[in-house]
Computed example of a mutant assay.
Amino acid sequence: MTIYLPIAELPVNVFTLLAMGIAVGFISGMFGVGGGFLMTPLLIFLGVSPAVAVASVTTHMAASSFSGTLTYTRRKLVDYQLGGMLLAGGLTGTLGGVITFMVLRRFGQLDLFIAVAYITLLGTIGTLMVVESLRALVRNWRGQKAEVRRPGAHPWFLRLPFKMRFRQSHIYVSAIPVVTIGFVIGFLGALMGIGGGFLLVPALIYLLRVPTLTSVATSLLLTLVTMVAAILMQAVLNQTVDAVLGLVLMIGGVIGAQFGARAGQSMKAENLRLLLGLLVLAVGMRVLVDQTSQPADPYAVTIDESAR
């Protein structure tokens, strides 16, 4: 069954889109990520333009994050206080990302920026997560205990002023790095079509020392709110949100996220981090191969956005 995407100007099979939504929604619920880092490249590979893919994927991430957040809320794993501080920076970053998106698109540099940013971010974060997770697994296999930080041995940025106690996450840190992390996640989410969870979850775990499941649950909450804001901003400022595409992806995302969240809660933290790292690294490598390989048709006609 083929449907026509009015904004993307592309006919696609509705069952293909639905299957993509379910699969990425499952991953979103399991790892606490928005899934955009996977869905955006998939849509681009399908033939959707990067501008429309980035803007429309926000609807899928909002739906799957909402579904996953409900599941974790029932388990009382969401740190609302930490989520509120992250959102303070996240919403501001989302606005900045949408404006930067608009400027890059106007000057015809958006596609190149998205490709380079995906390769750099996914490759770096994925490699770091895989290495750390493998070390943890080897340490557990040998029966060695993880190194415990001595009191006062936290990084300097956690000892900045305006310290707050986040009881659900069992941490006492400065609010400045928390807000900064939220800003960066919101900015990249709006600019690159990623929920930011694949960055936020490692940041909460390794920088702020938040427990893994709490990081996953709180990440979904931040993704939900920032992606709803991104949908509204992209639709008003850039007119690149394809409602038909977004609706099909949303339906699949809600279904998949419920099963993914349940699967994620039954896995060990080390295994969860390793799988997420491998997934992030694999997507980054796939984007790199796509950008460096010779296209089947070396000639293409594009519309100069700056001339509009």
Rank of each mutant, 00 (worst) to 15 (best):
V236D: 10
S266Y: 12
S174E: 04
I22S: 06
V98M: 09
Y80E: 07
G197A: 01
F37C: 08
G97S: 07
L232A: 15
V138D: 11
G84S: 12
A175K: 01
L247N: 08
L222N: 01
G97W: 04
T223P: 02
V52L: 05
F37M: 14
V48E: 00
G196C: 07
F66Y: 14
G25L: 01
A175M: 05
Y299T: 13
R167T: 15
V225I: 13
L5Q: 04
G25F: 01
G108P: 08
L46S: 11
A146V: 13
N238H: 10
A23C: 12
M61C: 06
A115K: 13
S306C: 05
Q168S: 09
L199K: 00
L275A: 12
D297A: 13
I44W: 03
V138W: 14
Q168N: 10
A257C: 11
Q239N: 14
T100I: 01
S215K: 02
G84F: 11
G195A: 02
A190G: 10
I7R: 06
M102K: 09
I3M: 08
V98N: 04
G277T: 04
F31W: 05
L191K: 06
L86K: 00
I251T: 14
T2G: 07
I27L: 15
F26I: 05
R262C: 04
H60A: 14
R149T: 11
L158R: 08
L38D: 00
K145P: 06
M102C: 02
T180E: 01
R142W: 10
P11T: 15
Q258T: 09
F37R: 03
F66Q: 04
